[in-house]
Nucleic acid binder design. Sequence first.
RNA 1: GGUCGCGUAGCUCAGCUGGAUAGAGCAUCUGCCUUCUAAGCAGACGGUCGAAGGUUCGAAUCCUUCCGCGAUCACCA
Length: 595
Amino acid sequence: MNIQEVLSDKVKEAIYSIFNVELPHVEFQPTRKDFEGDVTVVVFPMLRFVKGNPELIGKQIGEFLQNNVDEVSGFNVVKGFLNIVICDSYYLSFFNTIKELADYGRVSEPGHEAVMVEYSSPNTNKPLHLGHIRNNLLGYSVAEILKAAGKKVYKTQIINDRGIHICKSMLAWQRFGNGETPESSGLKGDKLVGNYYVAFDKAYKAEIAEMIAEGVEKEIAEKEAPILKEAQEMLRKWEAGDEEVVTLWKRMNGWVYKGFDETYKNLGVDFDQLYYESNTYLLGKDVVADGLEKGIFYKKGDGSVWIDLTDEGLDEKIVLRSDGTAVYMTQDIGTAIQRVKDFPDITGMVYTVGNEQDYHFKVLFLILKKLGFTWAERLHHLSYGMVDLPSGKMKSREGTVVDADDLMDDMSQTAATISEELGKLEEYTDTEKQELFRMIGLGALKYYILKVDPKKRILFNPEESVDFQGNTGPFIQYTYARIQSILRKADKIEIVWSTTVANTLELHLKEKELLKQLQLFPETIQLAAENYSPALIANYTYDLVKEFNSFYQQVSILGESDEERKILRVQLSKKVGEVIQSAFLLLGIQVPERM
RNA sequence: GGUCGCGUAGCUCAGCUGGAUAGAGCAUCUGCCUUCUAAGCAGACGGUCGAAGGUUCGAAUCCUUCCGCGAUCACCA
């Protein structure tokens, strides 16, 4: 129980005993640093129930609390703000209760409610880029946060393995590839396939230019270019199950998956269950037939099926083509239902998809609700802003992308350069160093992306490297490493971890501030889960670390002469380290023993 | 044009269901390594919170209008 919960009832009691009025709610806030106190009760909202001077009311409540509540050791009133001083013993006993908890802040009993979190979901015709990195980091982190908040989580992705885009790569490979394979070229599979996607586009543009030169209109040329026609023909063959096309398709997708797996492994993300569009694109048609019967959908003259959402302030939306084939929406309806069939404990789903699809998901969720699925009430589109470059949007076709693998390598490289300059790793072997640089580089990248509100668009400038100082991943990792250094030394001088520090110890201001910050961890996890926001975890961790560094600077930990106080400081450092590690795990960032 | 999102210091971002003098980092400038890792700490500088109205004891936060940026409004996915 945190201090606000303790005090809330007591304040109500105070109001009842002084004014004989039942107060429905008490408003708290942390006391601002410039005033004395730990928590503040805001008196203004009470004026609706209690008539009088806010300053005076505050004083009366303060006196009541000081006399009747053990945890309250003092108070002061500034305007309508009652600043309450909480006694040290409260914080010390709080610390003693959490000290040994290995997973402090997390809900330990696994919930029976499951949530499926979808993220990544790439096309299989090109490598992953910076945009996918944001998607992956967000999805993975939200999944971890939901777990920590007590949910059972299934991580999933739907791989867009079919369609015209992969046919383009296949066709270009057939034409220009001369049998090139990842083995023969030494290229990562997804890179190789991506090269042919670019090659297709080049050939396609050349054909268009040629046709225009021959007097064909641009728009017609774009539709009629022979290479495009051929790709479309390939897609038709694929859908018909043509053996040759399907074999090539399997082969090239196989290359891509191998490449993706490597990238995912480097990024540190994983999935519990994969869905492939080639298996799901026909799903949903039965549901549409069913909905048609129920009158949720209606059929137009040409046979296409629609839903009218104008009552909801949206448009009419097609759910089945006039030729009876599925559209994107049909497929998503079907996939959602399939997932609940596969995992019957699912009560909600999270879709990590860019904000360009806000409208699509609004409609999808509405349709599923209208179809009467109870779980449709608990669907969430984790919508995030695009990652743009100073030059504009990233386009794979035109090669203006920041490649995921390259970026991760660059980050490691930067970490290596900085680290070598500082030169504190003499005793490390080369492999240990490489591992560390990777950890730091990735930490910088992940933190940089996750600390900002997902809704905001990110402008990524590759020229200016991601910071390693200030509010960054490495700053937090560094603090963790420093703590571990203290603990290694403390171990040698035999500080006993299990020693319980007496509640009577008088706390240093910095110790108290640290304890207050530690107390916020559980509620921060819950808040982050409710808001699907890794940024809240990142900012919390940053505040904790700032507080610790200030503590570290101002007091001596191992050099403290009072034995009991030294024990407290070491234990406190250890706990802060654990919380940093735990919080960073939620962001998918590792922490080093030294750096 | 309709709908949705965003707009806070030179730059990158915090700011919870409205609360005290709007906070960090980067950059610029000052100090601090004979004591636990200086990727650090302490401090200075820097703001009419896009604009105007409104609600309220109180607004960066809620409402309205306007401006700017982005996304979206396909029998593409």
